[in-house]
Amino acid sequence: MAPVTYLEAIRQGIWEEMERDPSVFCIGEDIGVYGGAFKITEGFIHHFGKERVVDTPISEAAIVSAAYGASLTGMRPVAEFQFMDFISSAHTQIVNACAKSNWRWGAPAPMVMRGPSGGGVSGGPFHSQNPEMWYAHTPGLKVICPATATDAKGLIKSAIRDNNPCLFFEHKYLYRRVKEELPEGDYTVEIGKARTHREGKDISIITYAAMVYVAQEAADILAKEGIDLEIIDLRTVAPLDVDAIVNTVKKTNKVIVLHEDVKTGGIAGEIAAIINENCFDDLDGPIVRITALDTPVPFSPPLEKVFLPKVEDVVREARKLKAY
């Protein structure tokens, strides 16, 4: 099979689930005739009809709530945010209505809320954010952040089949930059299981989404210096794969947590605490956090470059950590 993009993999995943299961339908802004701002659902409306590809008013709160309501009747809606930044307009609907539904009154909400997140494209403060931690902090939600096309397809399928509200953060920088040959047939990837992106013995980099590729570039540079990085791609930030985190720390004894989200309240702090609680004695050096700056995402390229974590940051910090 010819390699396909990360974006195409998500398209395929949703398409196949809609063919497989009549309870699946899409709802969002400009997803019908136009096919979505990034063309994830291009052609869907002609194939599946407008009843299953619902163009909505610009109303994120209504989109999420309507998806939630439909899920109460046993449907499996896939709601699109044109940009994940707009998720804040549906915040209470997600964290209060959907997330607490099964726990509070035994009403399952099998629904997916997906859309493009992340920076590196000069999208500015409202088209570049990584809002995943607002939701990882809320019990009752699953938060998925795939890095590869294979995972993106397998995880979107798992999210659609999941009985709980799932947030699916696609990385817009990866949409058309990542291209892979996908596994044949109908496959899924389990939610909550991390993936070893690169085996190594000296230092573990725990990361996810677009930063997996930053870690990869750094690993290639450091390999020439004899520093062997292990890269763990979390794939989901809620639930976290605690076993995978502990196992890699036990293996390399040194760890860098790398993410594109801002530092304060990012998943790195949580992972550091998990390491402290589970395998403090295995550490041979301090836990290092490499993250975006604690500022809004800037628009102008030179500013955004300063904001985002870079390959040279990883290389520098890894060299320091190796010396411990």
Partner: peptide, 12 residues
């Protein structure tokens, strides 16, 4: 907040 939820139920 129940208003859009009711809409979703009717849609389902």
């Amino acid at each position: 907040d129940s208003i859009p939820v009711m809409a979703g139920i009717a849609m389902g």
